[in-house]
Design a protein around this nucleic acid. Structure first.
Lengths: 135, 135
DNA sequence: CTCTTTGCAAAACATTTGCATGCCT
DNA sequence: AGGCATGCAAATGTTTTGCAAAGAG
């Protein structure tokens, strides 16, 4: 997905393309890593000093629901990044310092064929550590 | 680990064995699943109406630090359960309704030998779904 | 008797919601 | 014009912390 496609997706679903939404989406496409909500707010506040954080929360939730972003949670904080491979199932290696992530295609679920009397609906596999820049 | 061993571990590390701590520990050993903090507070409030939730938070953090409990986070809530296999690396299948978990010995990290220029420090692999009782 | 534990109060923090105004289309 | 978006205010929910009183060893 490109940022243009993301904006088209907004329009296609009946949502307006506002300046703030454009900035948020471009910011995510220019920073391909898991960003904390705070990081997004700090960035947007520079451009729009009067910005209210609710707007960011609301838009991030919207983008997540539309499949533009994907969400994870680390240390009690939500984090988002571009869902650039929406159609491919994958997992992430996430840097604990900068939030940058690499995609890994391996999914451990292939090794866990079935669990008796348990209906599996989802799973989470994430690797944490430090990237080359943050070590 | 047994509940008795857990209490001995407390004493050995210079902490008192209070009635509330005993109740909390027994409650975890009698309910072998991921319990939310709220569940623990609700249970303990029945026995000690004057209970303050801070006590529960403080003790759960203590037990976690001592290796008696292990922690996870689901939907922005912390959850704890007995760390019954502290020495063995393992993962969990967790019921989204009741929090009950099964241990699985498979660790996907054996399939992910190394990631270039990334220093791995930890990982999370959890499977979510519904157990036989909650389906 | 001393040190730990607890309750109380308050704060810290992340997130959500109702409502009125304002901006896209 | 009409509906979605935003800011404001306030609420919600979870977790943490300082301090003084109560309890354990």
């Amino acid at each position: 997905m490109t940022s243009t496609e993301a904006l088209e997706l907004l329009k296609k679903n009946g949502y307006s393309i506002t300046d703030k939404r454009e900035k948020i989406i471009h910011y995510f496409f220019e920073h391909p890593r898991y960003l904390s909500v705070k990081e997004v707010i700090d960035y947007l506040k520079e451009l729009y000093p009067g910005l209210s954080f609710e707007t960011v929360y609301r838009n991030l939730a919207l983008f997540r629901d539309l499949g533009i972003l994907e969400e994870t949670e680390l240390d009690g904080e939500k984090r988002f990044q571009v869902n650039c491979e929406a159609s491919h199932h994958h997992h992430h290696v996430i840097c604990l310092k900068c939030g940058k992530s690499k995609t890994i295609q391996q999914c451990p679920m292939s090794q866990v064929p079935e669990i008796e009397e348990f209906k599996i609906v989802e799973h989470k596999f994430e690797i944490y550590g430090y990237c080359s820049d943050c070590q």
